[in-house]
Write a protein that binds this DNA or RNA. Structure first.
Length: 224
DNA sequence: ACTACGATCTACT
DNA sequence: GTAGATCGTAGTG
C-alpha cells in the first residue's frame, strides 16, 4: 500500500493530443485519469474526480475573458499547467487545452488519493482521506504544487497526467461551476457521480435549482 | 498610486 | 451557516 514508487504503478504521461481538443471535451475526458507529482520527498498521485471548464473571451467567468498578464498561459500550448494564486492563501492548477493561440483550460477541483497518502497528510496537516484533495486549494497543497509550476509541461515528469480511467458503472455528472460570480448557471463542472472525494459532498452536487430556462444538467454520452 | 476582489479554506457560532 | 484570513491581480484615478 504505502511505499509504492511511481514506477511501480504509473503508466506514462498522456500525450499532447489529448489536451489539444475543445475544453469541454477535455474537462469530461480527464475524469478518472491521474495527476502525479514525483519529488525527492516522494511520489504522490490522485485520480481526477472533479473538473471545471474555463473558456476564452466567450466565457465571462474565465480568467481569459480578457487577456491579462496572469492568464496568458491559457493561450499557450496545450498540456501545460496554468497555476494561479488566489484569496491570499491558495494555489489552483489548470490544464491548458485547445490549440496554441486559442484560450482554454480545465481546473482540477478534486482528486481521489491514490499514492503517497502519508506525504499528503504531512503537507496538509489533516488525517481524513476525504480532506486531503477534495478542493482545488487542498489538492495543490497535498501534491506540493505552487506558483513555480506555472507553465510546466504536464506531459513530462515530475508533474504530469497519467492514464487512468472510469470503472464500468461510473457515470459522469454535470453541474454549474463553483465559486464564480458570472455565468453562474453554465453547467461546465464535471464530476464522478457518487465519488466520496468531490469538493462538495457526495450527495449534494445535484442541488442547484434551475431558474427560468432549463439547462442541460443530464450527463451526456460518457467515454474517455 | 489606490482600491476592490477573488475559479478558497478553516474556524467558529 | 457565516465570517476572517491574506495578498497578488486587475481596474480605476
Amino acid at each position: 500500500m504505502t511505499g509504492a514508487t511511481a514506477e511501480a504503478w504509473a503508466p506514462g504521461p498522456l500525450d499532447r493530443g489529448f489536451f489539444a481538443r475543445p475544453t469541454l471535451i477535455v474537462a469530461r475526458a480527464l475524469l478518472g485519469h491521474l495527476l502525479v507529482h514525483e519529488t525527492p520527498e516522494g511520489a504522490v498521485a490522485g485520480r481526477i474526480v472533479e473538473t471545471e471548464a474555463y473558456l476564452g473571451p466567450s466565457d465571462p467567468a474565465s480568467h481569459a475573458y480578457r487577456r491579462t498578464p496572469r492568464s496568458r498561459m491559457m493561450w499557450g500550448p496545450p498540456g501545460h499547467a496554468y497555476v494561479y494564486f488566489t484569496y491570499g492563501n491558495h494555489f489552483c492548477i489548470n490544464v491548458v487545452t485547445e490549440q496554441e493561440g486559442v484560450a482554454g483550460a480545465v481546473l482540477i477541483r478534486a482528486l481521489q488519493p491514490v499514492a503517497g497518502v502519508e506525504l499528503m497528510r504531512r503537507r496538509r496537516g489533516v488525517e481524513g482521506l476525504r480532506d486531503l484533495c477534495s478542493g482545488p486549494g487542498r489538492l495543490t497543497q497535498a501534491l506540493g504544487i505552487g506558483g513555480h509550476h506555472n507553465g510546466h509541461d504536464l506531459t513530462r515528469p515530475p508533474l504530469y497526467v497519467a492514464r487512468g480511467g472510469l470503472d464500468d458503472g461510473e457515470r459522469v455528472g454535470r453541474s454549474a461551476r463553483v465559486g464564480i460570480s458570472r455565468a453562474v448557471d453554465w453547467p461546465w463542472r464535471f464530476f464522478v457521480v457518487g465519488s466520496a472525494f468531490v469538493s462538495r459532498g457526495p450527495t449534494r452536487p445535484w442541488r442547484r435549482h434551475l431558474k427560468g430556462r432549463a439547462t442541460p444538467a443530464d450527463s451526456g454520452p460518457d467515454r474517455a
